[in-house]
Amino acid sequence: MSEKIIQNEPVIIIKNLYKSFGTLDVLKGVDLTINKGENVAILGKSGTGKSVLIKILVGLLKPDKGSVIVLDQNIAKLNEKELNALRIQVGFSFQNSALYDSMSIRQNMEFPLIMNNKNLSKTEVAKAVHEVLEAVGLKDKMNEMPGDLSGGQRKRIGIARTLILRPKIMLYDEPTAGLDPITCTEINNLINQVQETYNTTSIIITHDLSCARETGDRVAMLLDGKFAKIGSFDEVFKTDNEQIQNFYKYNFIQ
């Protein structure tokens, strides 16, 4: 990765965050601060609450305890209008892309843009769609339906759809899950390219070590509902913690 400047300006501050589902405690006191322009990869086994954490960041889930401050706004204190204004600034790329099946790729791109900017002209919308599809390298797929695309292409389109609203923060939920190694590398490069081009701050939720290493300026290891270690990739995995070592070994074998 090329050298980049990370400003010492926190855009996401998570403090003492707790979340349970029934009797299952998922997050048990999570603390994390992310600075502007930084890519943070959150690693952890399936079911450790990684996706829950980013869903709390956009208000899809409510925490039981603790505070989440995104772009200087406390999520818990926002009304619906304020939350929507914040959501426009936070792009969320879903694990299964969540493309609208009944719409073409072009309509998938246009939909969030038109719904949030009713005054845009047709030319402006077409230009924005053209630009984001070019950024993800899928300009030629504009008139196809989501069902006609491969898994990797769907992920790219999912990322393009979030980029069309020009977010300041990007949240990627398992961006490389279910993809072959070559496509994984392409997606990792795309995440870095998005950060450079659009100057976003990103959280990458993954259980894929190569994704965390290639995309994360910092890596945070989520174990038993808390961050066991936060630091550079090498710092996190130079440890005596057996669970972290096992996680590394398992990924290596894979």
């Binding site: 869903k55 899809l60 929507n84 969320f92 969540a98 493309l99 969030p112 979030t162 609203l165």
Partner: peptide, 25 residues
């Protein structure tokens, strides 16, 4: 079936995070 499949494939969540009110739409 349509809304159910949109729910389980997170399309409704995708609307919500794009600041679109899925209930209204």
């Amino acid at each position: 079936a349509e809304l159910g499949s949109m729910r389980v494939t997170e399309q409704i969540d995708a609307m919500e995070v794009s600041a679109i009110n899925p209930f209204k739409y």
